[in-house]
Simulated assay, not measured.
Amino acid sequence: MSVAVETKALTPPDIAARKGRDRIVCLTAYTTPLARLADRHCDVVLVGDSVGMVLHGLPSTLSVTLDMMIMHGKAVRRGLDRALMVVDMPFASYEEGPEQAFRNAARLMAQTGCAAVKLEGGESMAETIRFLTAHGIPVMAHVGLTPQSVNVFGGYKVQGRDGDADRILRDAVAVAEAGAFSVVLEKVTEPLARRITAEVTIPTIGIGASAACDGQILVVDDMLGMFTGFRPKFVKRYAELGSEADAAIAAYAADVRDGRFPATEHVFDDAPKAGDVA
């Protein structure tokens, strides 16, 4: 006789407690079916603002709105039982100051059921992170390459070179001291990621930041091969679903044009048969 195992949803303190211990597995998700799959294997599921690029065809994350994040957040929430759900705060939803950030973060949490929010920025966001955490909103921070600031960086460039490592280290220390429960390090050099991971008291989640981090995150559409707009060096493709889908659609189109689909087994007649749906 099998015994059901109780599933307990992970919390921000659970993730913070993994520092220096078990590796933290994170993925993005934007839909219920993919959230269900990720929930079976991941510790953190992030509803990332990358949804604007991979699902909505936007050229960057800058046009993503709070309403878009809420819509996809609701869908992901329906697919999760165990993983910690985090939702990105989109561009211009928190930069004005702590009060604006709190209003929008509270709306995200209330309407999606997420357990935490993520926002980009280091020292400049420390006051906001401190305010949010003091008012009951757990924060995952994000330093290094911050895509919402891509125009300031002049592109998606590797961070931490040319004497810039100390700035990023200060950013990571600042968000940790402000109360963030973890920090994403994006597209930073391996020596810098190792240094930050050793010096901050919260888990580091790498994306293009080497295995020196306490955990890793990728955009699910990238690692499954479904988004083919571009392929960053740090992405490992674990499947090529985009190519497989293209081949499947081509085969379907050929079958329709040649009259092979629908075939007899796909057609209903007057007499009910097994497999019919009432």
Rank of each mutant, 00 (worst) to 15 (best):
I24Q: 02
T204Q: 00
R195F: 06
R40M: 14
I217G: 00
M89G: 02
V175Q: 01
D14P: 15
V117R: 05
K19V: 04
P203S: 06
T112P: 06
R195G: 05
K19H: 08
Q148K: 11
V45H: 05
H72I: 06
K273C: 13
E96F: 10
I137T: 04
P262Q: 04
N151D: 15
L58A: 11
K19Y: 09
D166P: 01
L192A: 01
H56S: 12
A75N: 04
V175R: 00
P33A: 10
S124W: 04
A211E: 10
A250D: 15
A198M: 04
A247C: 04
I196K: 02
R194M: 07
A165H: 03
E120Y: 07
L218K: 03
V86R: 09
T189L: 03
L169K: 14
P272G: 08
G225D: 05
G52K: 01
L37G: 07
T7M: 13
G79C: 10
I137A: 07
V173S: 05
I196C: 01
G215Y: 05
I24P: 00
C114P: 01
A245F: 14
D22G: 04
G208T: 07
P203C: 02
E96G: 00
V64C: 02
E265V: 08
Y30D: 04
D214V: 08
E190H: 14
A83E: 07
R107H: 04
R130H: 15
D258I: 00
L119D: 01
R36Y: 00
V175Y: 02
V139S: 04
V44G: 08
L34M: 15
A126H: 02
T7L: 15
R237G: 10
E199M: 13
F153K: 03
F268A: 12
F91E: 00
K8S: 11
G52L: 11
F230M: 11
